[in-house]
Design a protein around this nucleic acid. Sequence first.
RNA 1: GGGGAAGUCGCAUAGUGGCAAUUGCAACAGACUGUAAAUCUGUCCUCUUCGGAGUUCAGUGGUUCGAGUCCACUCUUCCCCA
Length: 268
Amino acid sequence: MDIGSGKDLADYHLHGTDIPYHLIDIHDAGYEYNVYQFMNDFIRAFDDIVRRGRQPILCGGTGMYVESVVKGYQLADAPVDPDFRHRMEAFSDEELTARLAGYIKLHNHTDTETRDRLLRALEIQEYRLQHPDAYPHIPPMQHLVVGVLYPRQTVIERIGLRLRERLQGGMIEEVKALLDSGVPEERLLRYGLEYRHVTQYLRGQCSYDDMYRDLYTDIRRFSKRQMTWFRRMERQGIPIHWIDGTLPFADKVEAVLRLFRQPDAERE
RNA sequence: GGGGAAGUCGCAUAGUGGCAAUUGCAACAGACUGUAAAUCUGUCCUCUUCGGAGUUCAGUGGUUCGAGUCCACUCUUCCCCA
């Protein structure tokens, strides 16, 4: 999953210097990952980097993955509990939803839409009750959150450019190879964006032009949702220092370094 | 040149006399601590003290208590025959 996931490995080699990176290629294609696992992987890498006296930089990822670290989500290491699931079989979705509502405030439908998700959400809550101390150790850290901001129109143009590059760069072939190697179709469909749309195209469910148009639209909407998330982070008290993306590369680097050198109090 | 069909809020679509006007997409705003590259919600002619108010359905005129809907002409687009 090199192209569709945007590994951008070439970016880790700059002016003759290799920039070390972590958490790329840590699982096989098709593996089902989640925020809890990410936090653990992040903490391991963070501790390792800090122990060696270096500066960790968390780059990219969705708003929620960044936030999980910055806010220090308290996620319990709740294992799948076959016994519990067996006992829950007797209850209807409505009863289970009511039960879940007794534990947490139901935010939207994502926890209650499918029985699988409902059971998992309950499983986690039951586990928390029994193991109130089962949270991962989150190391103390200070963070400086920096975002690169482009005008909306520029973002849209860049998305189109990147999409065309990926398609010409072998993305169709990449998805085909994944399917051929046995990664389940449902898995790819659930990854969303590139993997979802290209899989649908390869399965003959839409024309190439339809695939391109719908994928382009979905990426635009995704980028919009990311901005919604970042605005929410700021509203919740996490300042994001926005850098003008249209500046020359060196100026952007300088802007970040300037922020980094400033004491917290002097930053806006 | 002759015949036929059609022009509705960004695009596409409903609507045959009581409508600010259907639905989808896009757009915009928002929710979201365990699949999140996912999932879901709201707004979407203008103004609003959220009670309403004012302008709309290519254009002009007409019929009618009332017109997106009927009539006439004009403009534009598409199809068929030459």
